[in-house]
């Protein structure tokens, strides 16, 4: 038998302004219109792996259960396929809500430390800030170093395959003037006045 877990929720666990803050992100303004039909969860190819379905995430966000939402793997499993976005009968832009929640989770440091998805997002962010472009191979290498995710998945074979087909290049892609981009990005205010991540 698995461990017995107590699951009752008290009102003190709710964050009264959470829903409002999320709704302030572009695309998230219709969040409250959700009437919990479950179309998003039904159409989502990844809901079967999530600890809360997308419907539940929308609901928990609305209700202000911030910790429950930001600690869930759901927001990180969202692959941005936008299926829920276009099928939602209440025009809730679920994909945008997921982005807003990811941003919030990163800002609050609420994601699991070696969980690969937020790590990828941050490595990507840093690499683009540095070179202005992405070199996929290097991104993968960095991810590998940080998370160990490919252990046991036999990724060496894929690596060999890519080498054989001439697609595994370690040459770094870069803009001619990445410093100009950096200047622009630095001029952009960090979100909601919070501490910058990278």
């Amino acid at each position: 038998m698995s461990k017995i877990r107590r699951t009752i929720k008290y009102e003190s666990e709710r964050d009264g302004t959470f829903a409002e803050e999320i709704m302030a992100s572009p695309g998230c303004e219709d969040l409250l219109g959700c009437f919990q039909c479950g179309t998003c969860s039904g159409v989502c190819p990844l809901s079967i792996y999530m600890d809360h379905t997308p419907r539940q995430i929308i609901y928990l966000t609305r209700q202000g259960f911030k910790d429950e939402v930001l600690r869930s793997n759901t927001i990180w499993l969202c692959a941005s396929c936008y299926a829920c976005y276009v099928d939602c009968p209440k025009t809730v832009h679920i994909t945008d809500v997921m982005y807003a929640l990811k941003q919030r989770a990163i800002r609050e440091g609420l994601y699991p430390s070696r969980f690969p998805i937020p790590v990828l997002a941050r490595e990507f962010y840093k690499m683009v800030r540095g070179k202005g472009r992405l070199t996929e191979t290097w991104l993968v290498v960095r991810l590998l170093l940080k998370t160990n995710i490919f252990k046991g998945f036999g990724m060496w074979r894929l690596g060999l395959g890519l080498l054989r087909t001439g697609r595994f290049s370690l040459a770094v892609e870069s803009m001619k003037h990445p410093e100009e981009l950096r200047r622009i990005l630095d001029a952009s205010p960090a979100q909601h006045g919070k501490k910058e991540v990278a």
């Binding site: 009752i8 929720k9 008290y10 003190s12 209700q63």
Partner: peptide, 26 residues
């Protein structure tokens, strides 16, 4: 009342069937 928040309140106990947990709401 189970805690200070609930003191001097009417506490509604309900299963939040959409969230999947029981709630106590003062």
């Amino acid at each position: 009342a189970m805690n200070k928040d609930e003191e001097d309140h009417l506490v509604i106990r309900v299963e939040d069937t959409l969230a999947g947990f029981v709630r106590r709401i003062p």
